[in-house]
Simulated scan of single mutants.
Amino acid sequence: MPRSAQDILRNNVRDKLDRGGVVASITVRLTRGIEIARIAKTAGFDTLYIDMEHNSFSMDTTGQICMAALALDIAPFVRVPANTPEWISRVLDAGALGVIAPHVGSAEEARAVVAAAKFAPLGERSAAGGLPQLEYRAFPASESYPVMNRATMVIVQFETVAALERAEEILAVDGVDMVMIGTNDLTADMGIAGQYDHPRVREAYQRSIDICRRLGKHCGVGGLSSRPDLVAEFVKMGARYVSTGTDAAFLLQACTAKAKQVLDLEP
């Protein structure tokens, strides 16, 4: 039987990032069953993140997938639909090991996310007791809070020029662990929607990566599933977390290829 909270709880993604490894993530936007956690594990992903910003998943569905992922040692993250305590604390209480906060544009907003995600003294998250991350076991707060704070990742997204201009102050916020560049929204805000090869995109990644390296944080790549060449370039620059695409896109891609394979047999 585990003797401590630390014996139970590990975040393999944080550990891998801290070792300088590259993390592969799948975005869950279609599949409502816990099977997606096993598929992610079998496929070799380090983590999955449930995209509540862009789908109609319920809190119950989100929690079930998170708990299935925990049991398989796949770190479950959730992109919340709003950066508010009632969303952030609930997805974490449901089993998530990290929160992805979209559209963060200032240090003040980043501090609010940290406050909702972390227990004292780093934040103001309310004690729920019997957390799924700790197998519903009870531990003294003096033991569980540091372990939960260490394991729970706060990931902010840069999706506007304004956020990039404030990158240093945002990433300097204590408790922010990583930034993920939302390349699609960022290029749209720049007025170059979809122009992934534009020099401003490379500049955005280089600046974010340099700041992360200086502050001991991590940088992630998002929105570039169609451009593995650019993903490779940004990983070589120093990005270490890659959002590879959505379950819906992977399913459609495989189905399309199979249908074409058969239809091409027509004489």
Rank of each mutant, 00 (worst) to 15 (best):
S225M: 13
A193F: 08
R213H: 15
Y196W: 13
S226H: 15
G223T: 13
Y196Q: 10
R227S: 13
D189I: 12
A188L: 15
D229V: 13
Q206D: 08
S226C: 14
V201H: 02
A204N: 03
V201A: 01
E203L: 10
R207L: 12
S226V: 15
R227D: 14
G222W: 00
G194R: 09
P228G: 01
L215E: 09
A232N: 10
P228V: 09
G191M: 02
R227Q: 15
G223M: 07
I211L: 08
C212Y: 12
L215Q: 11
C212R: 07
H198F: 05
L224T: 03
I192D: 00
D189S: 14
T187D: 00
D197M: 09
P228C: 08
V231G: 05
G223E: 11
S225G: 15
R213V: 13
M190P: 01
R213W: 06
S226K: 15
L215N: 05
P228S: 04
A204Q: 03
G220H: 11
G191C: 03
V231W: 13
H198A: 06
A204S: 09
L230I: 10
D210W: 06
Y196R: 12
Q195K: 15
T187W: 03
D210N: 14
T187F: 00
L224V: 06
G216Q: 00
G191S: 02
D210V: 10
R200H: 12
H198E: 02
D229N: 09
L224M: 13
R227H: 12
L215M: 12
G194W: 09
Q206S: 10
R213M: 13
H198V: 05
D210H: 10
V221G: 03
M190I: 09
S208Y: 04
R207F: 05
C212A: 15
A193Q: 13
H198M: 04
T187P: 03
D189E: 13
P228D: 03
E203C: 04
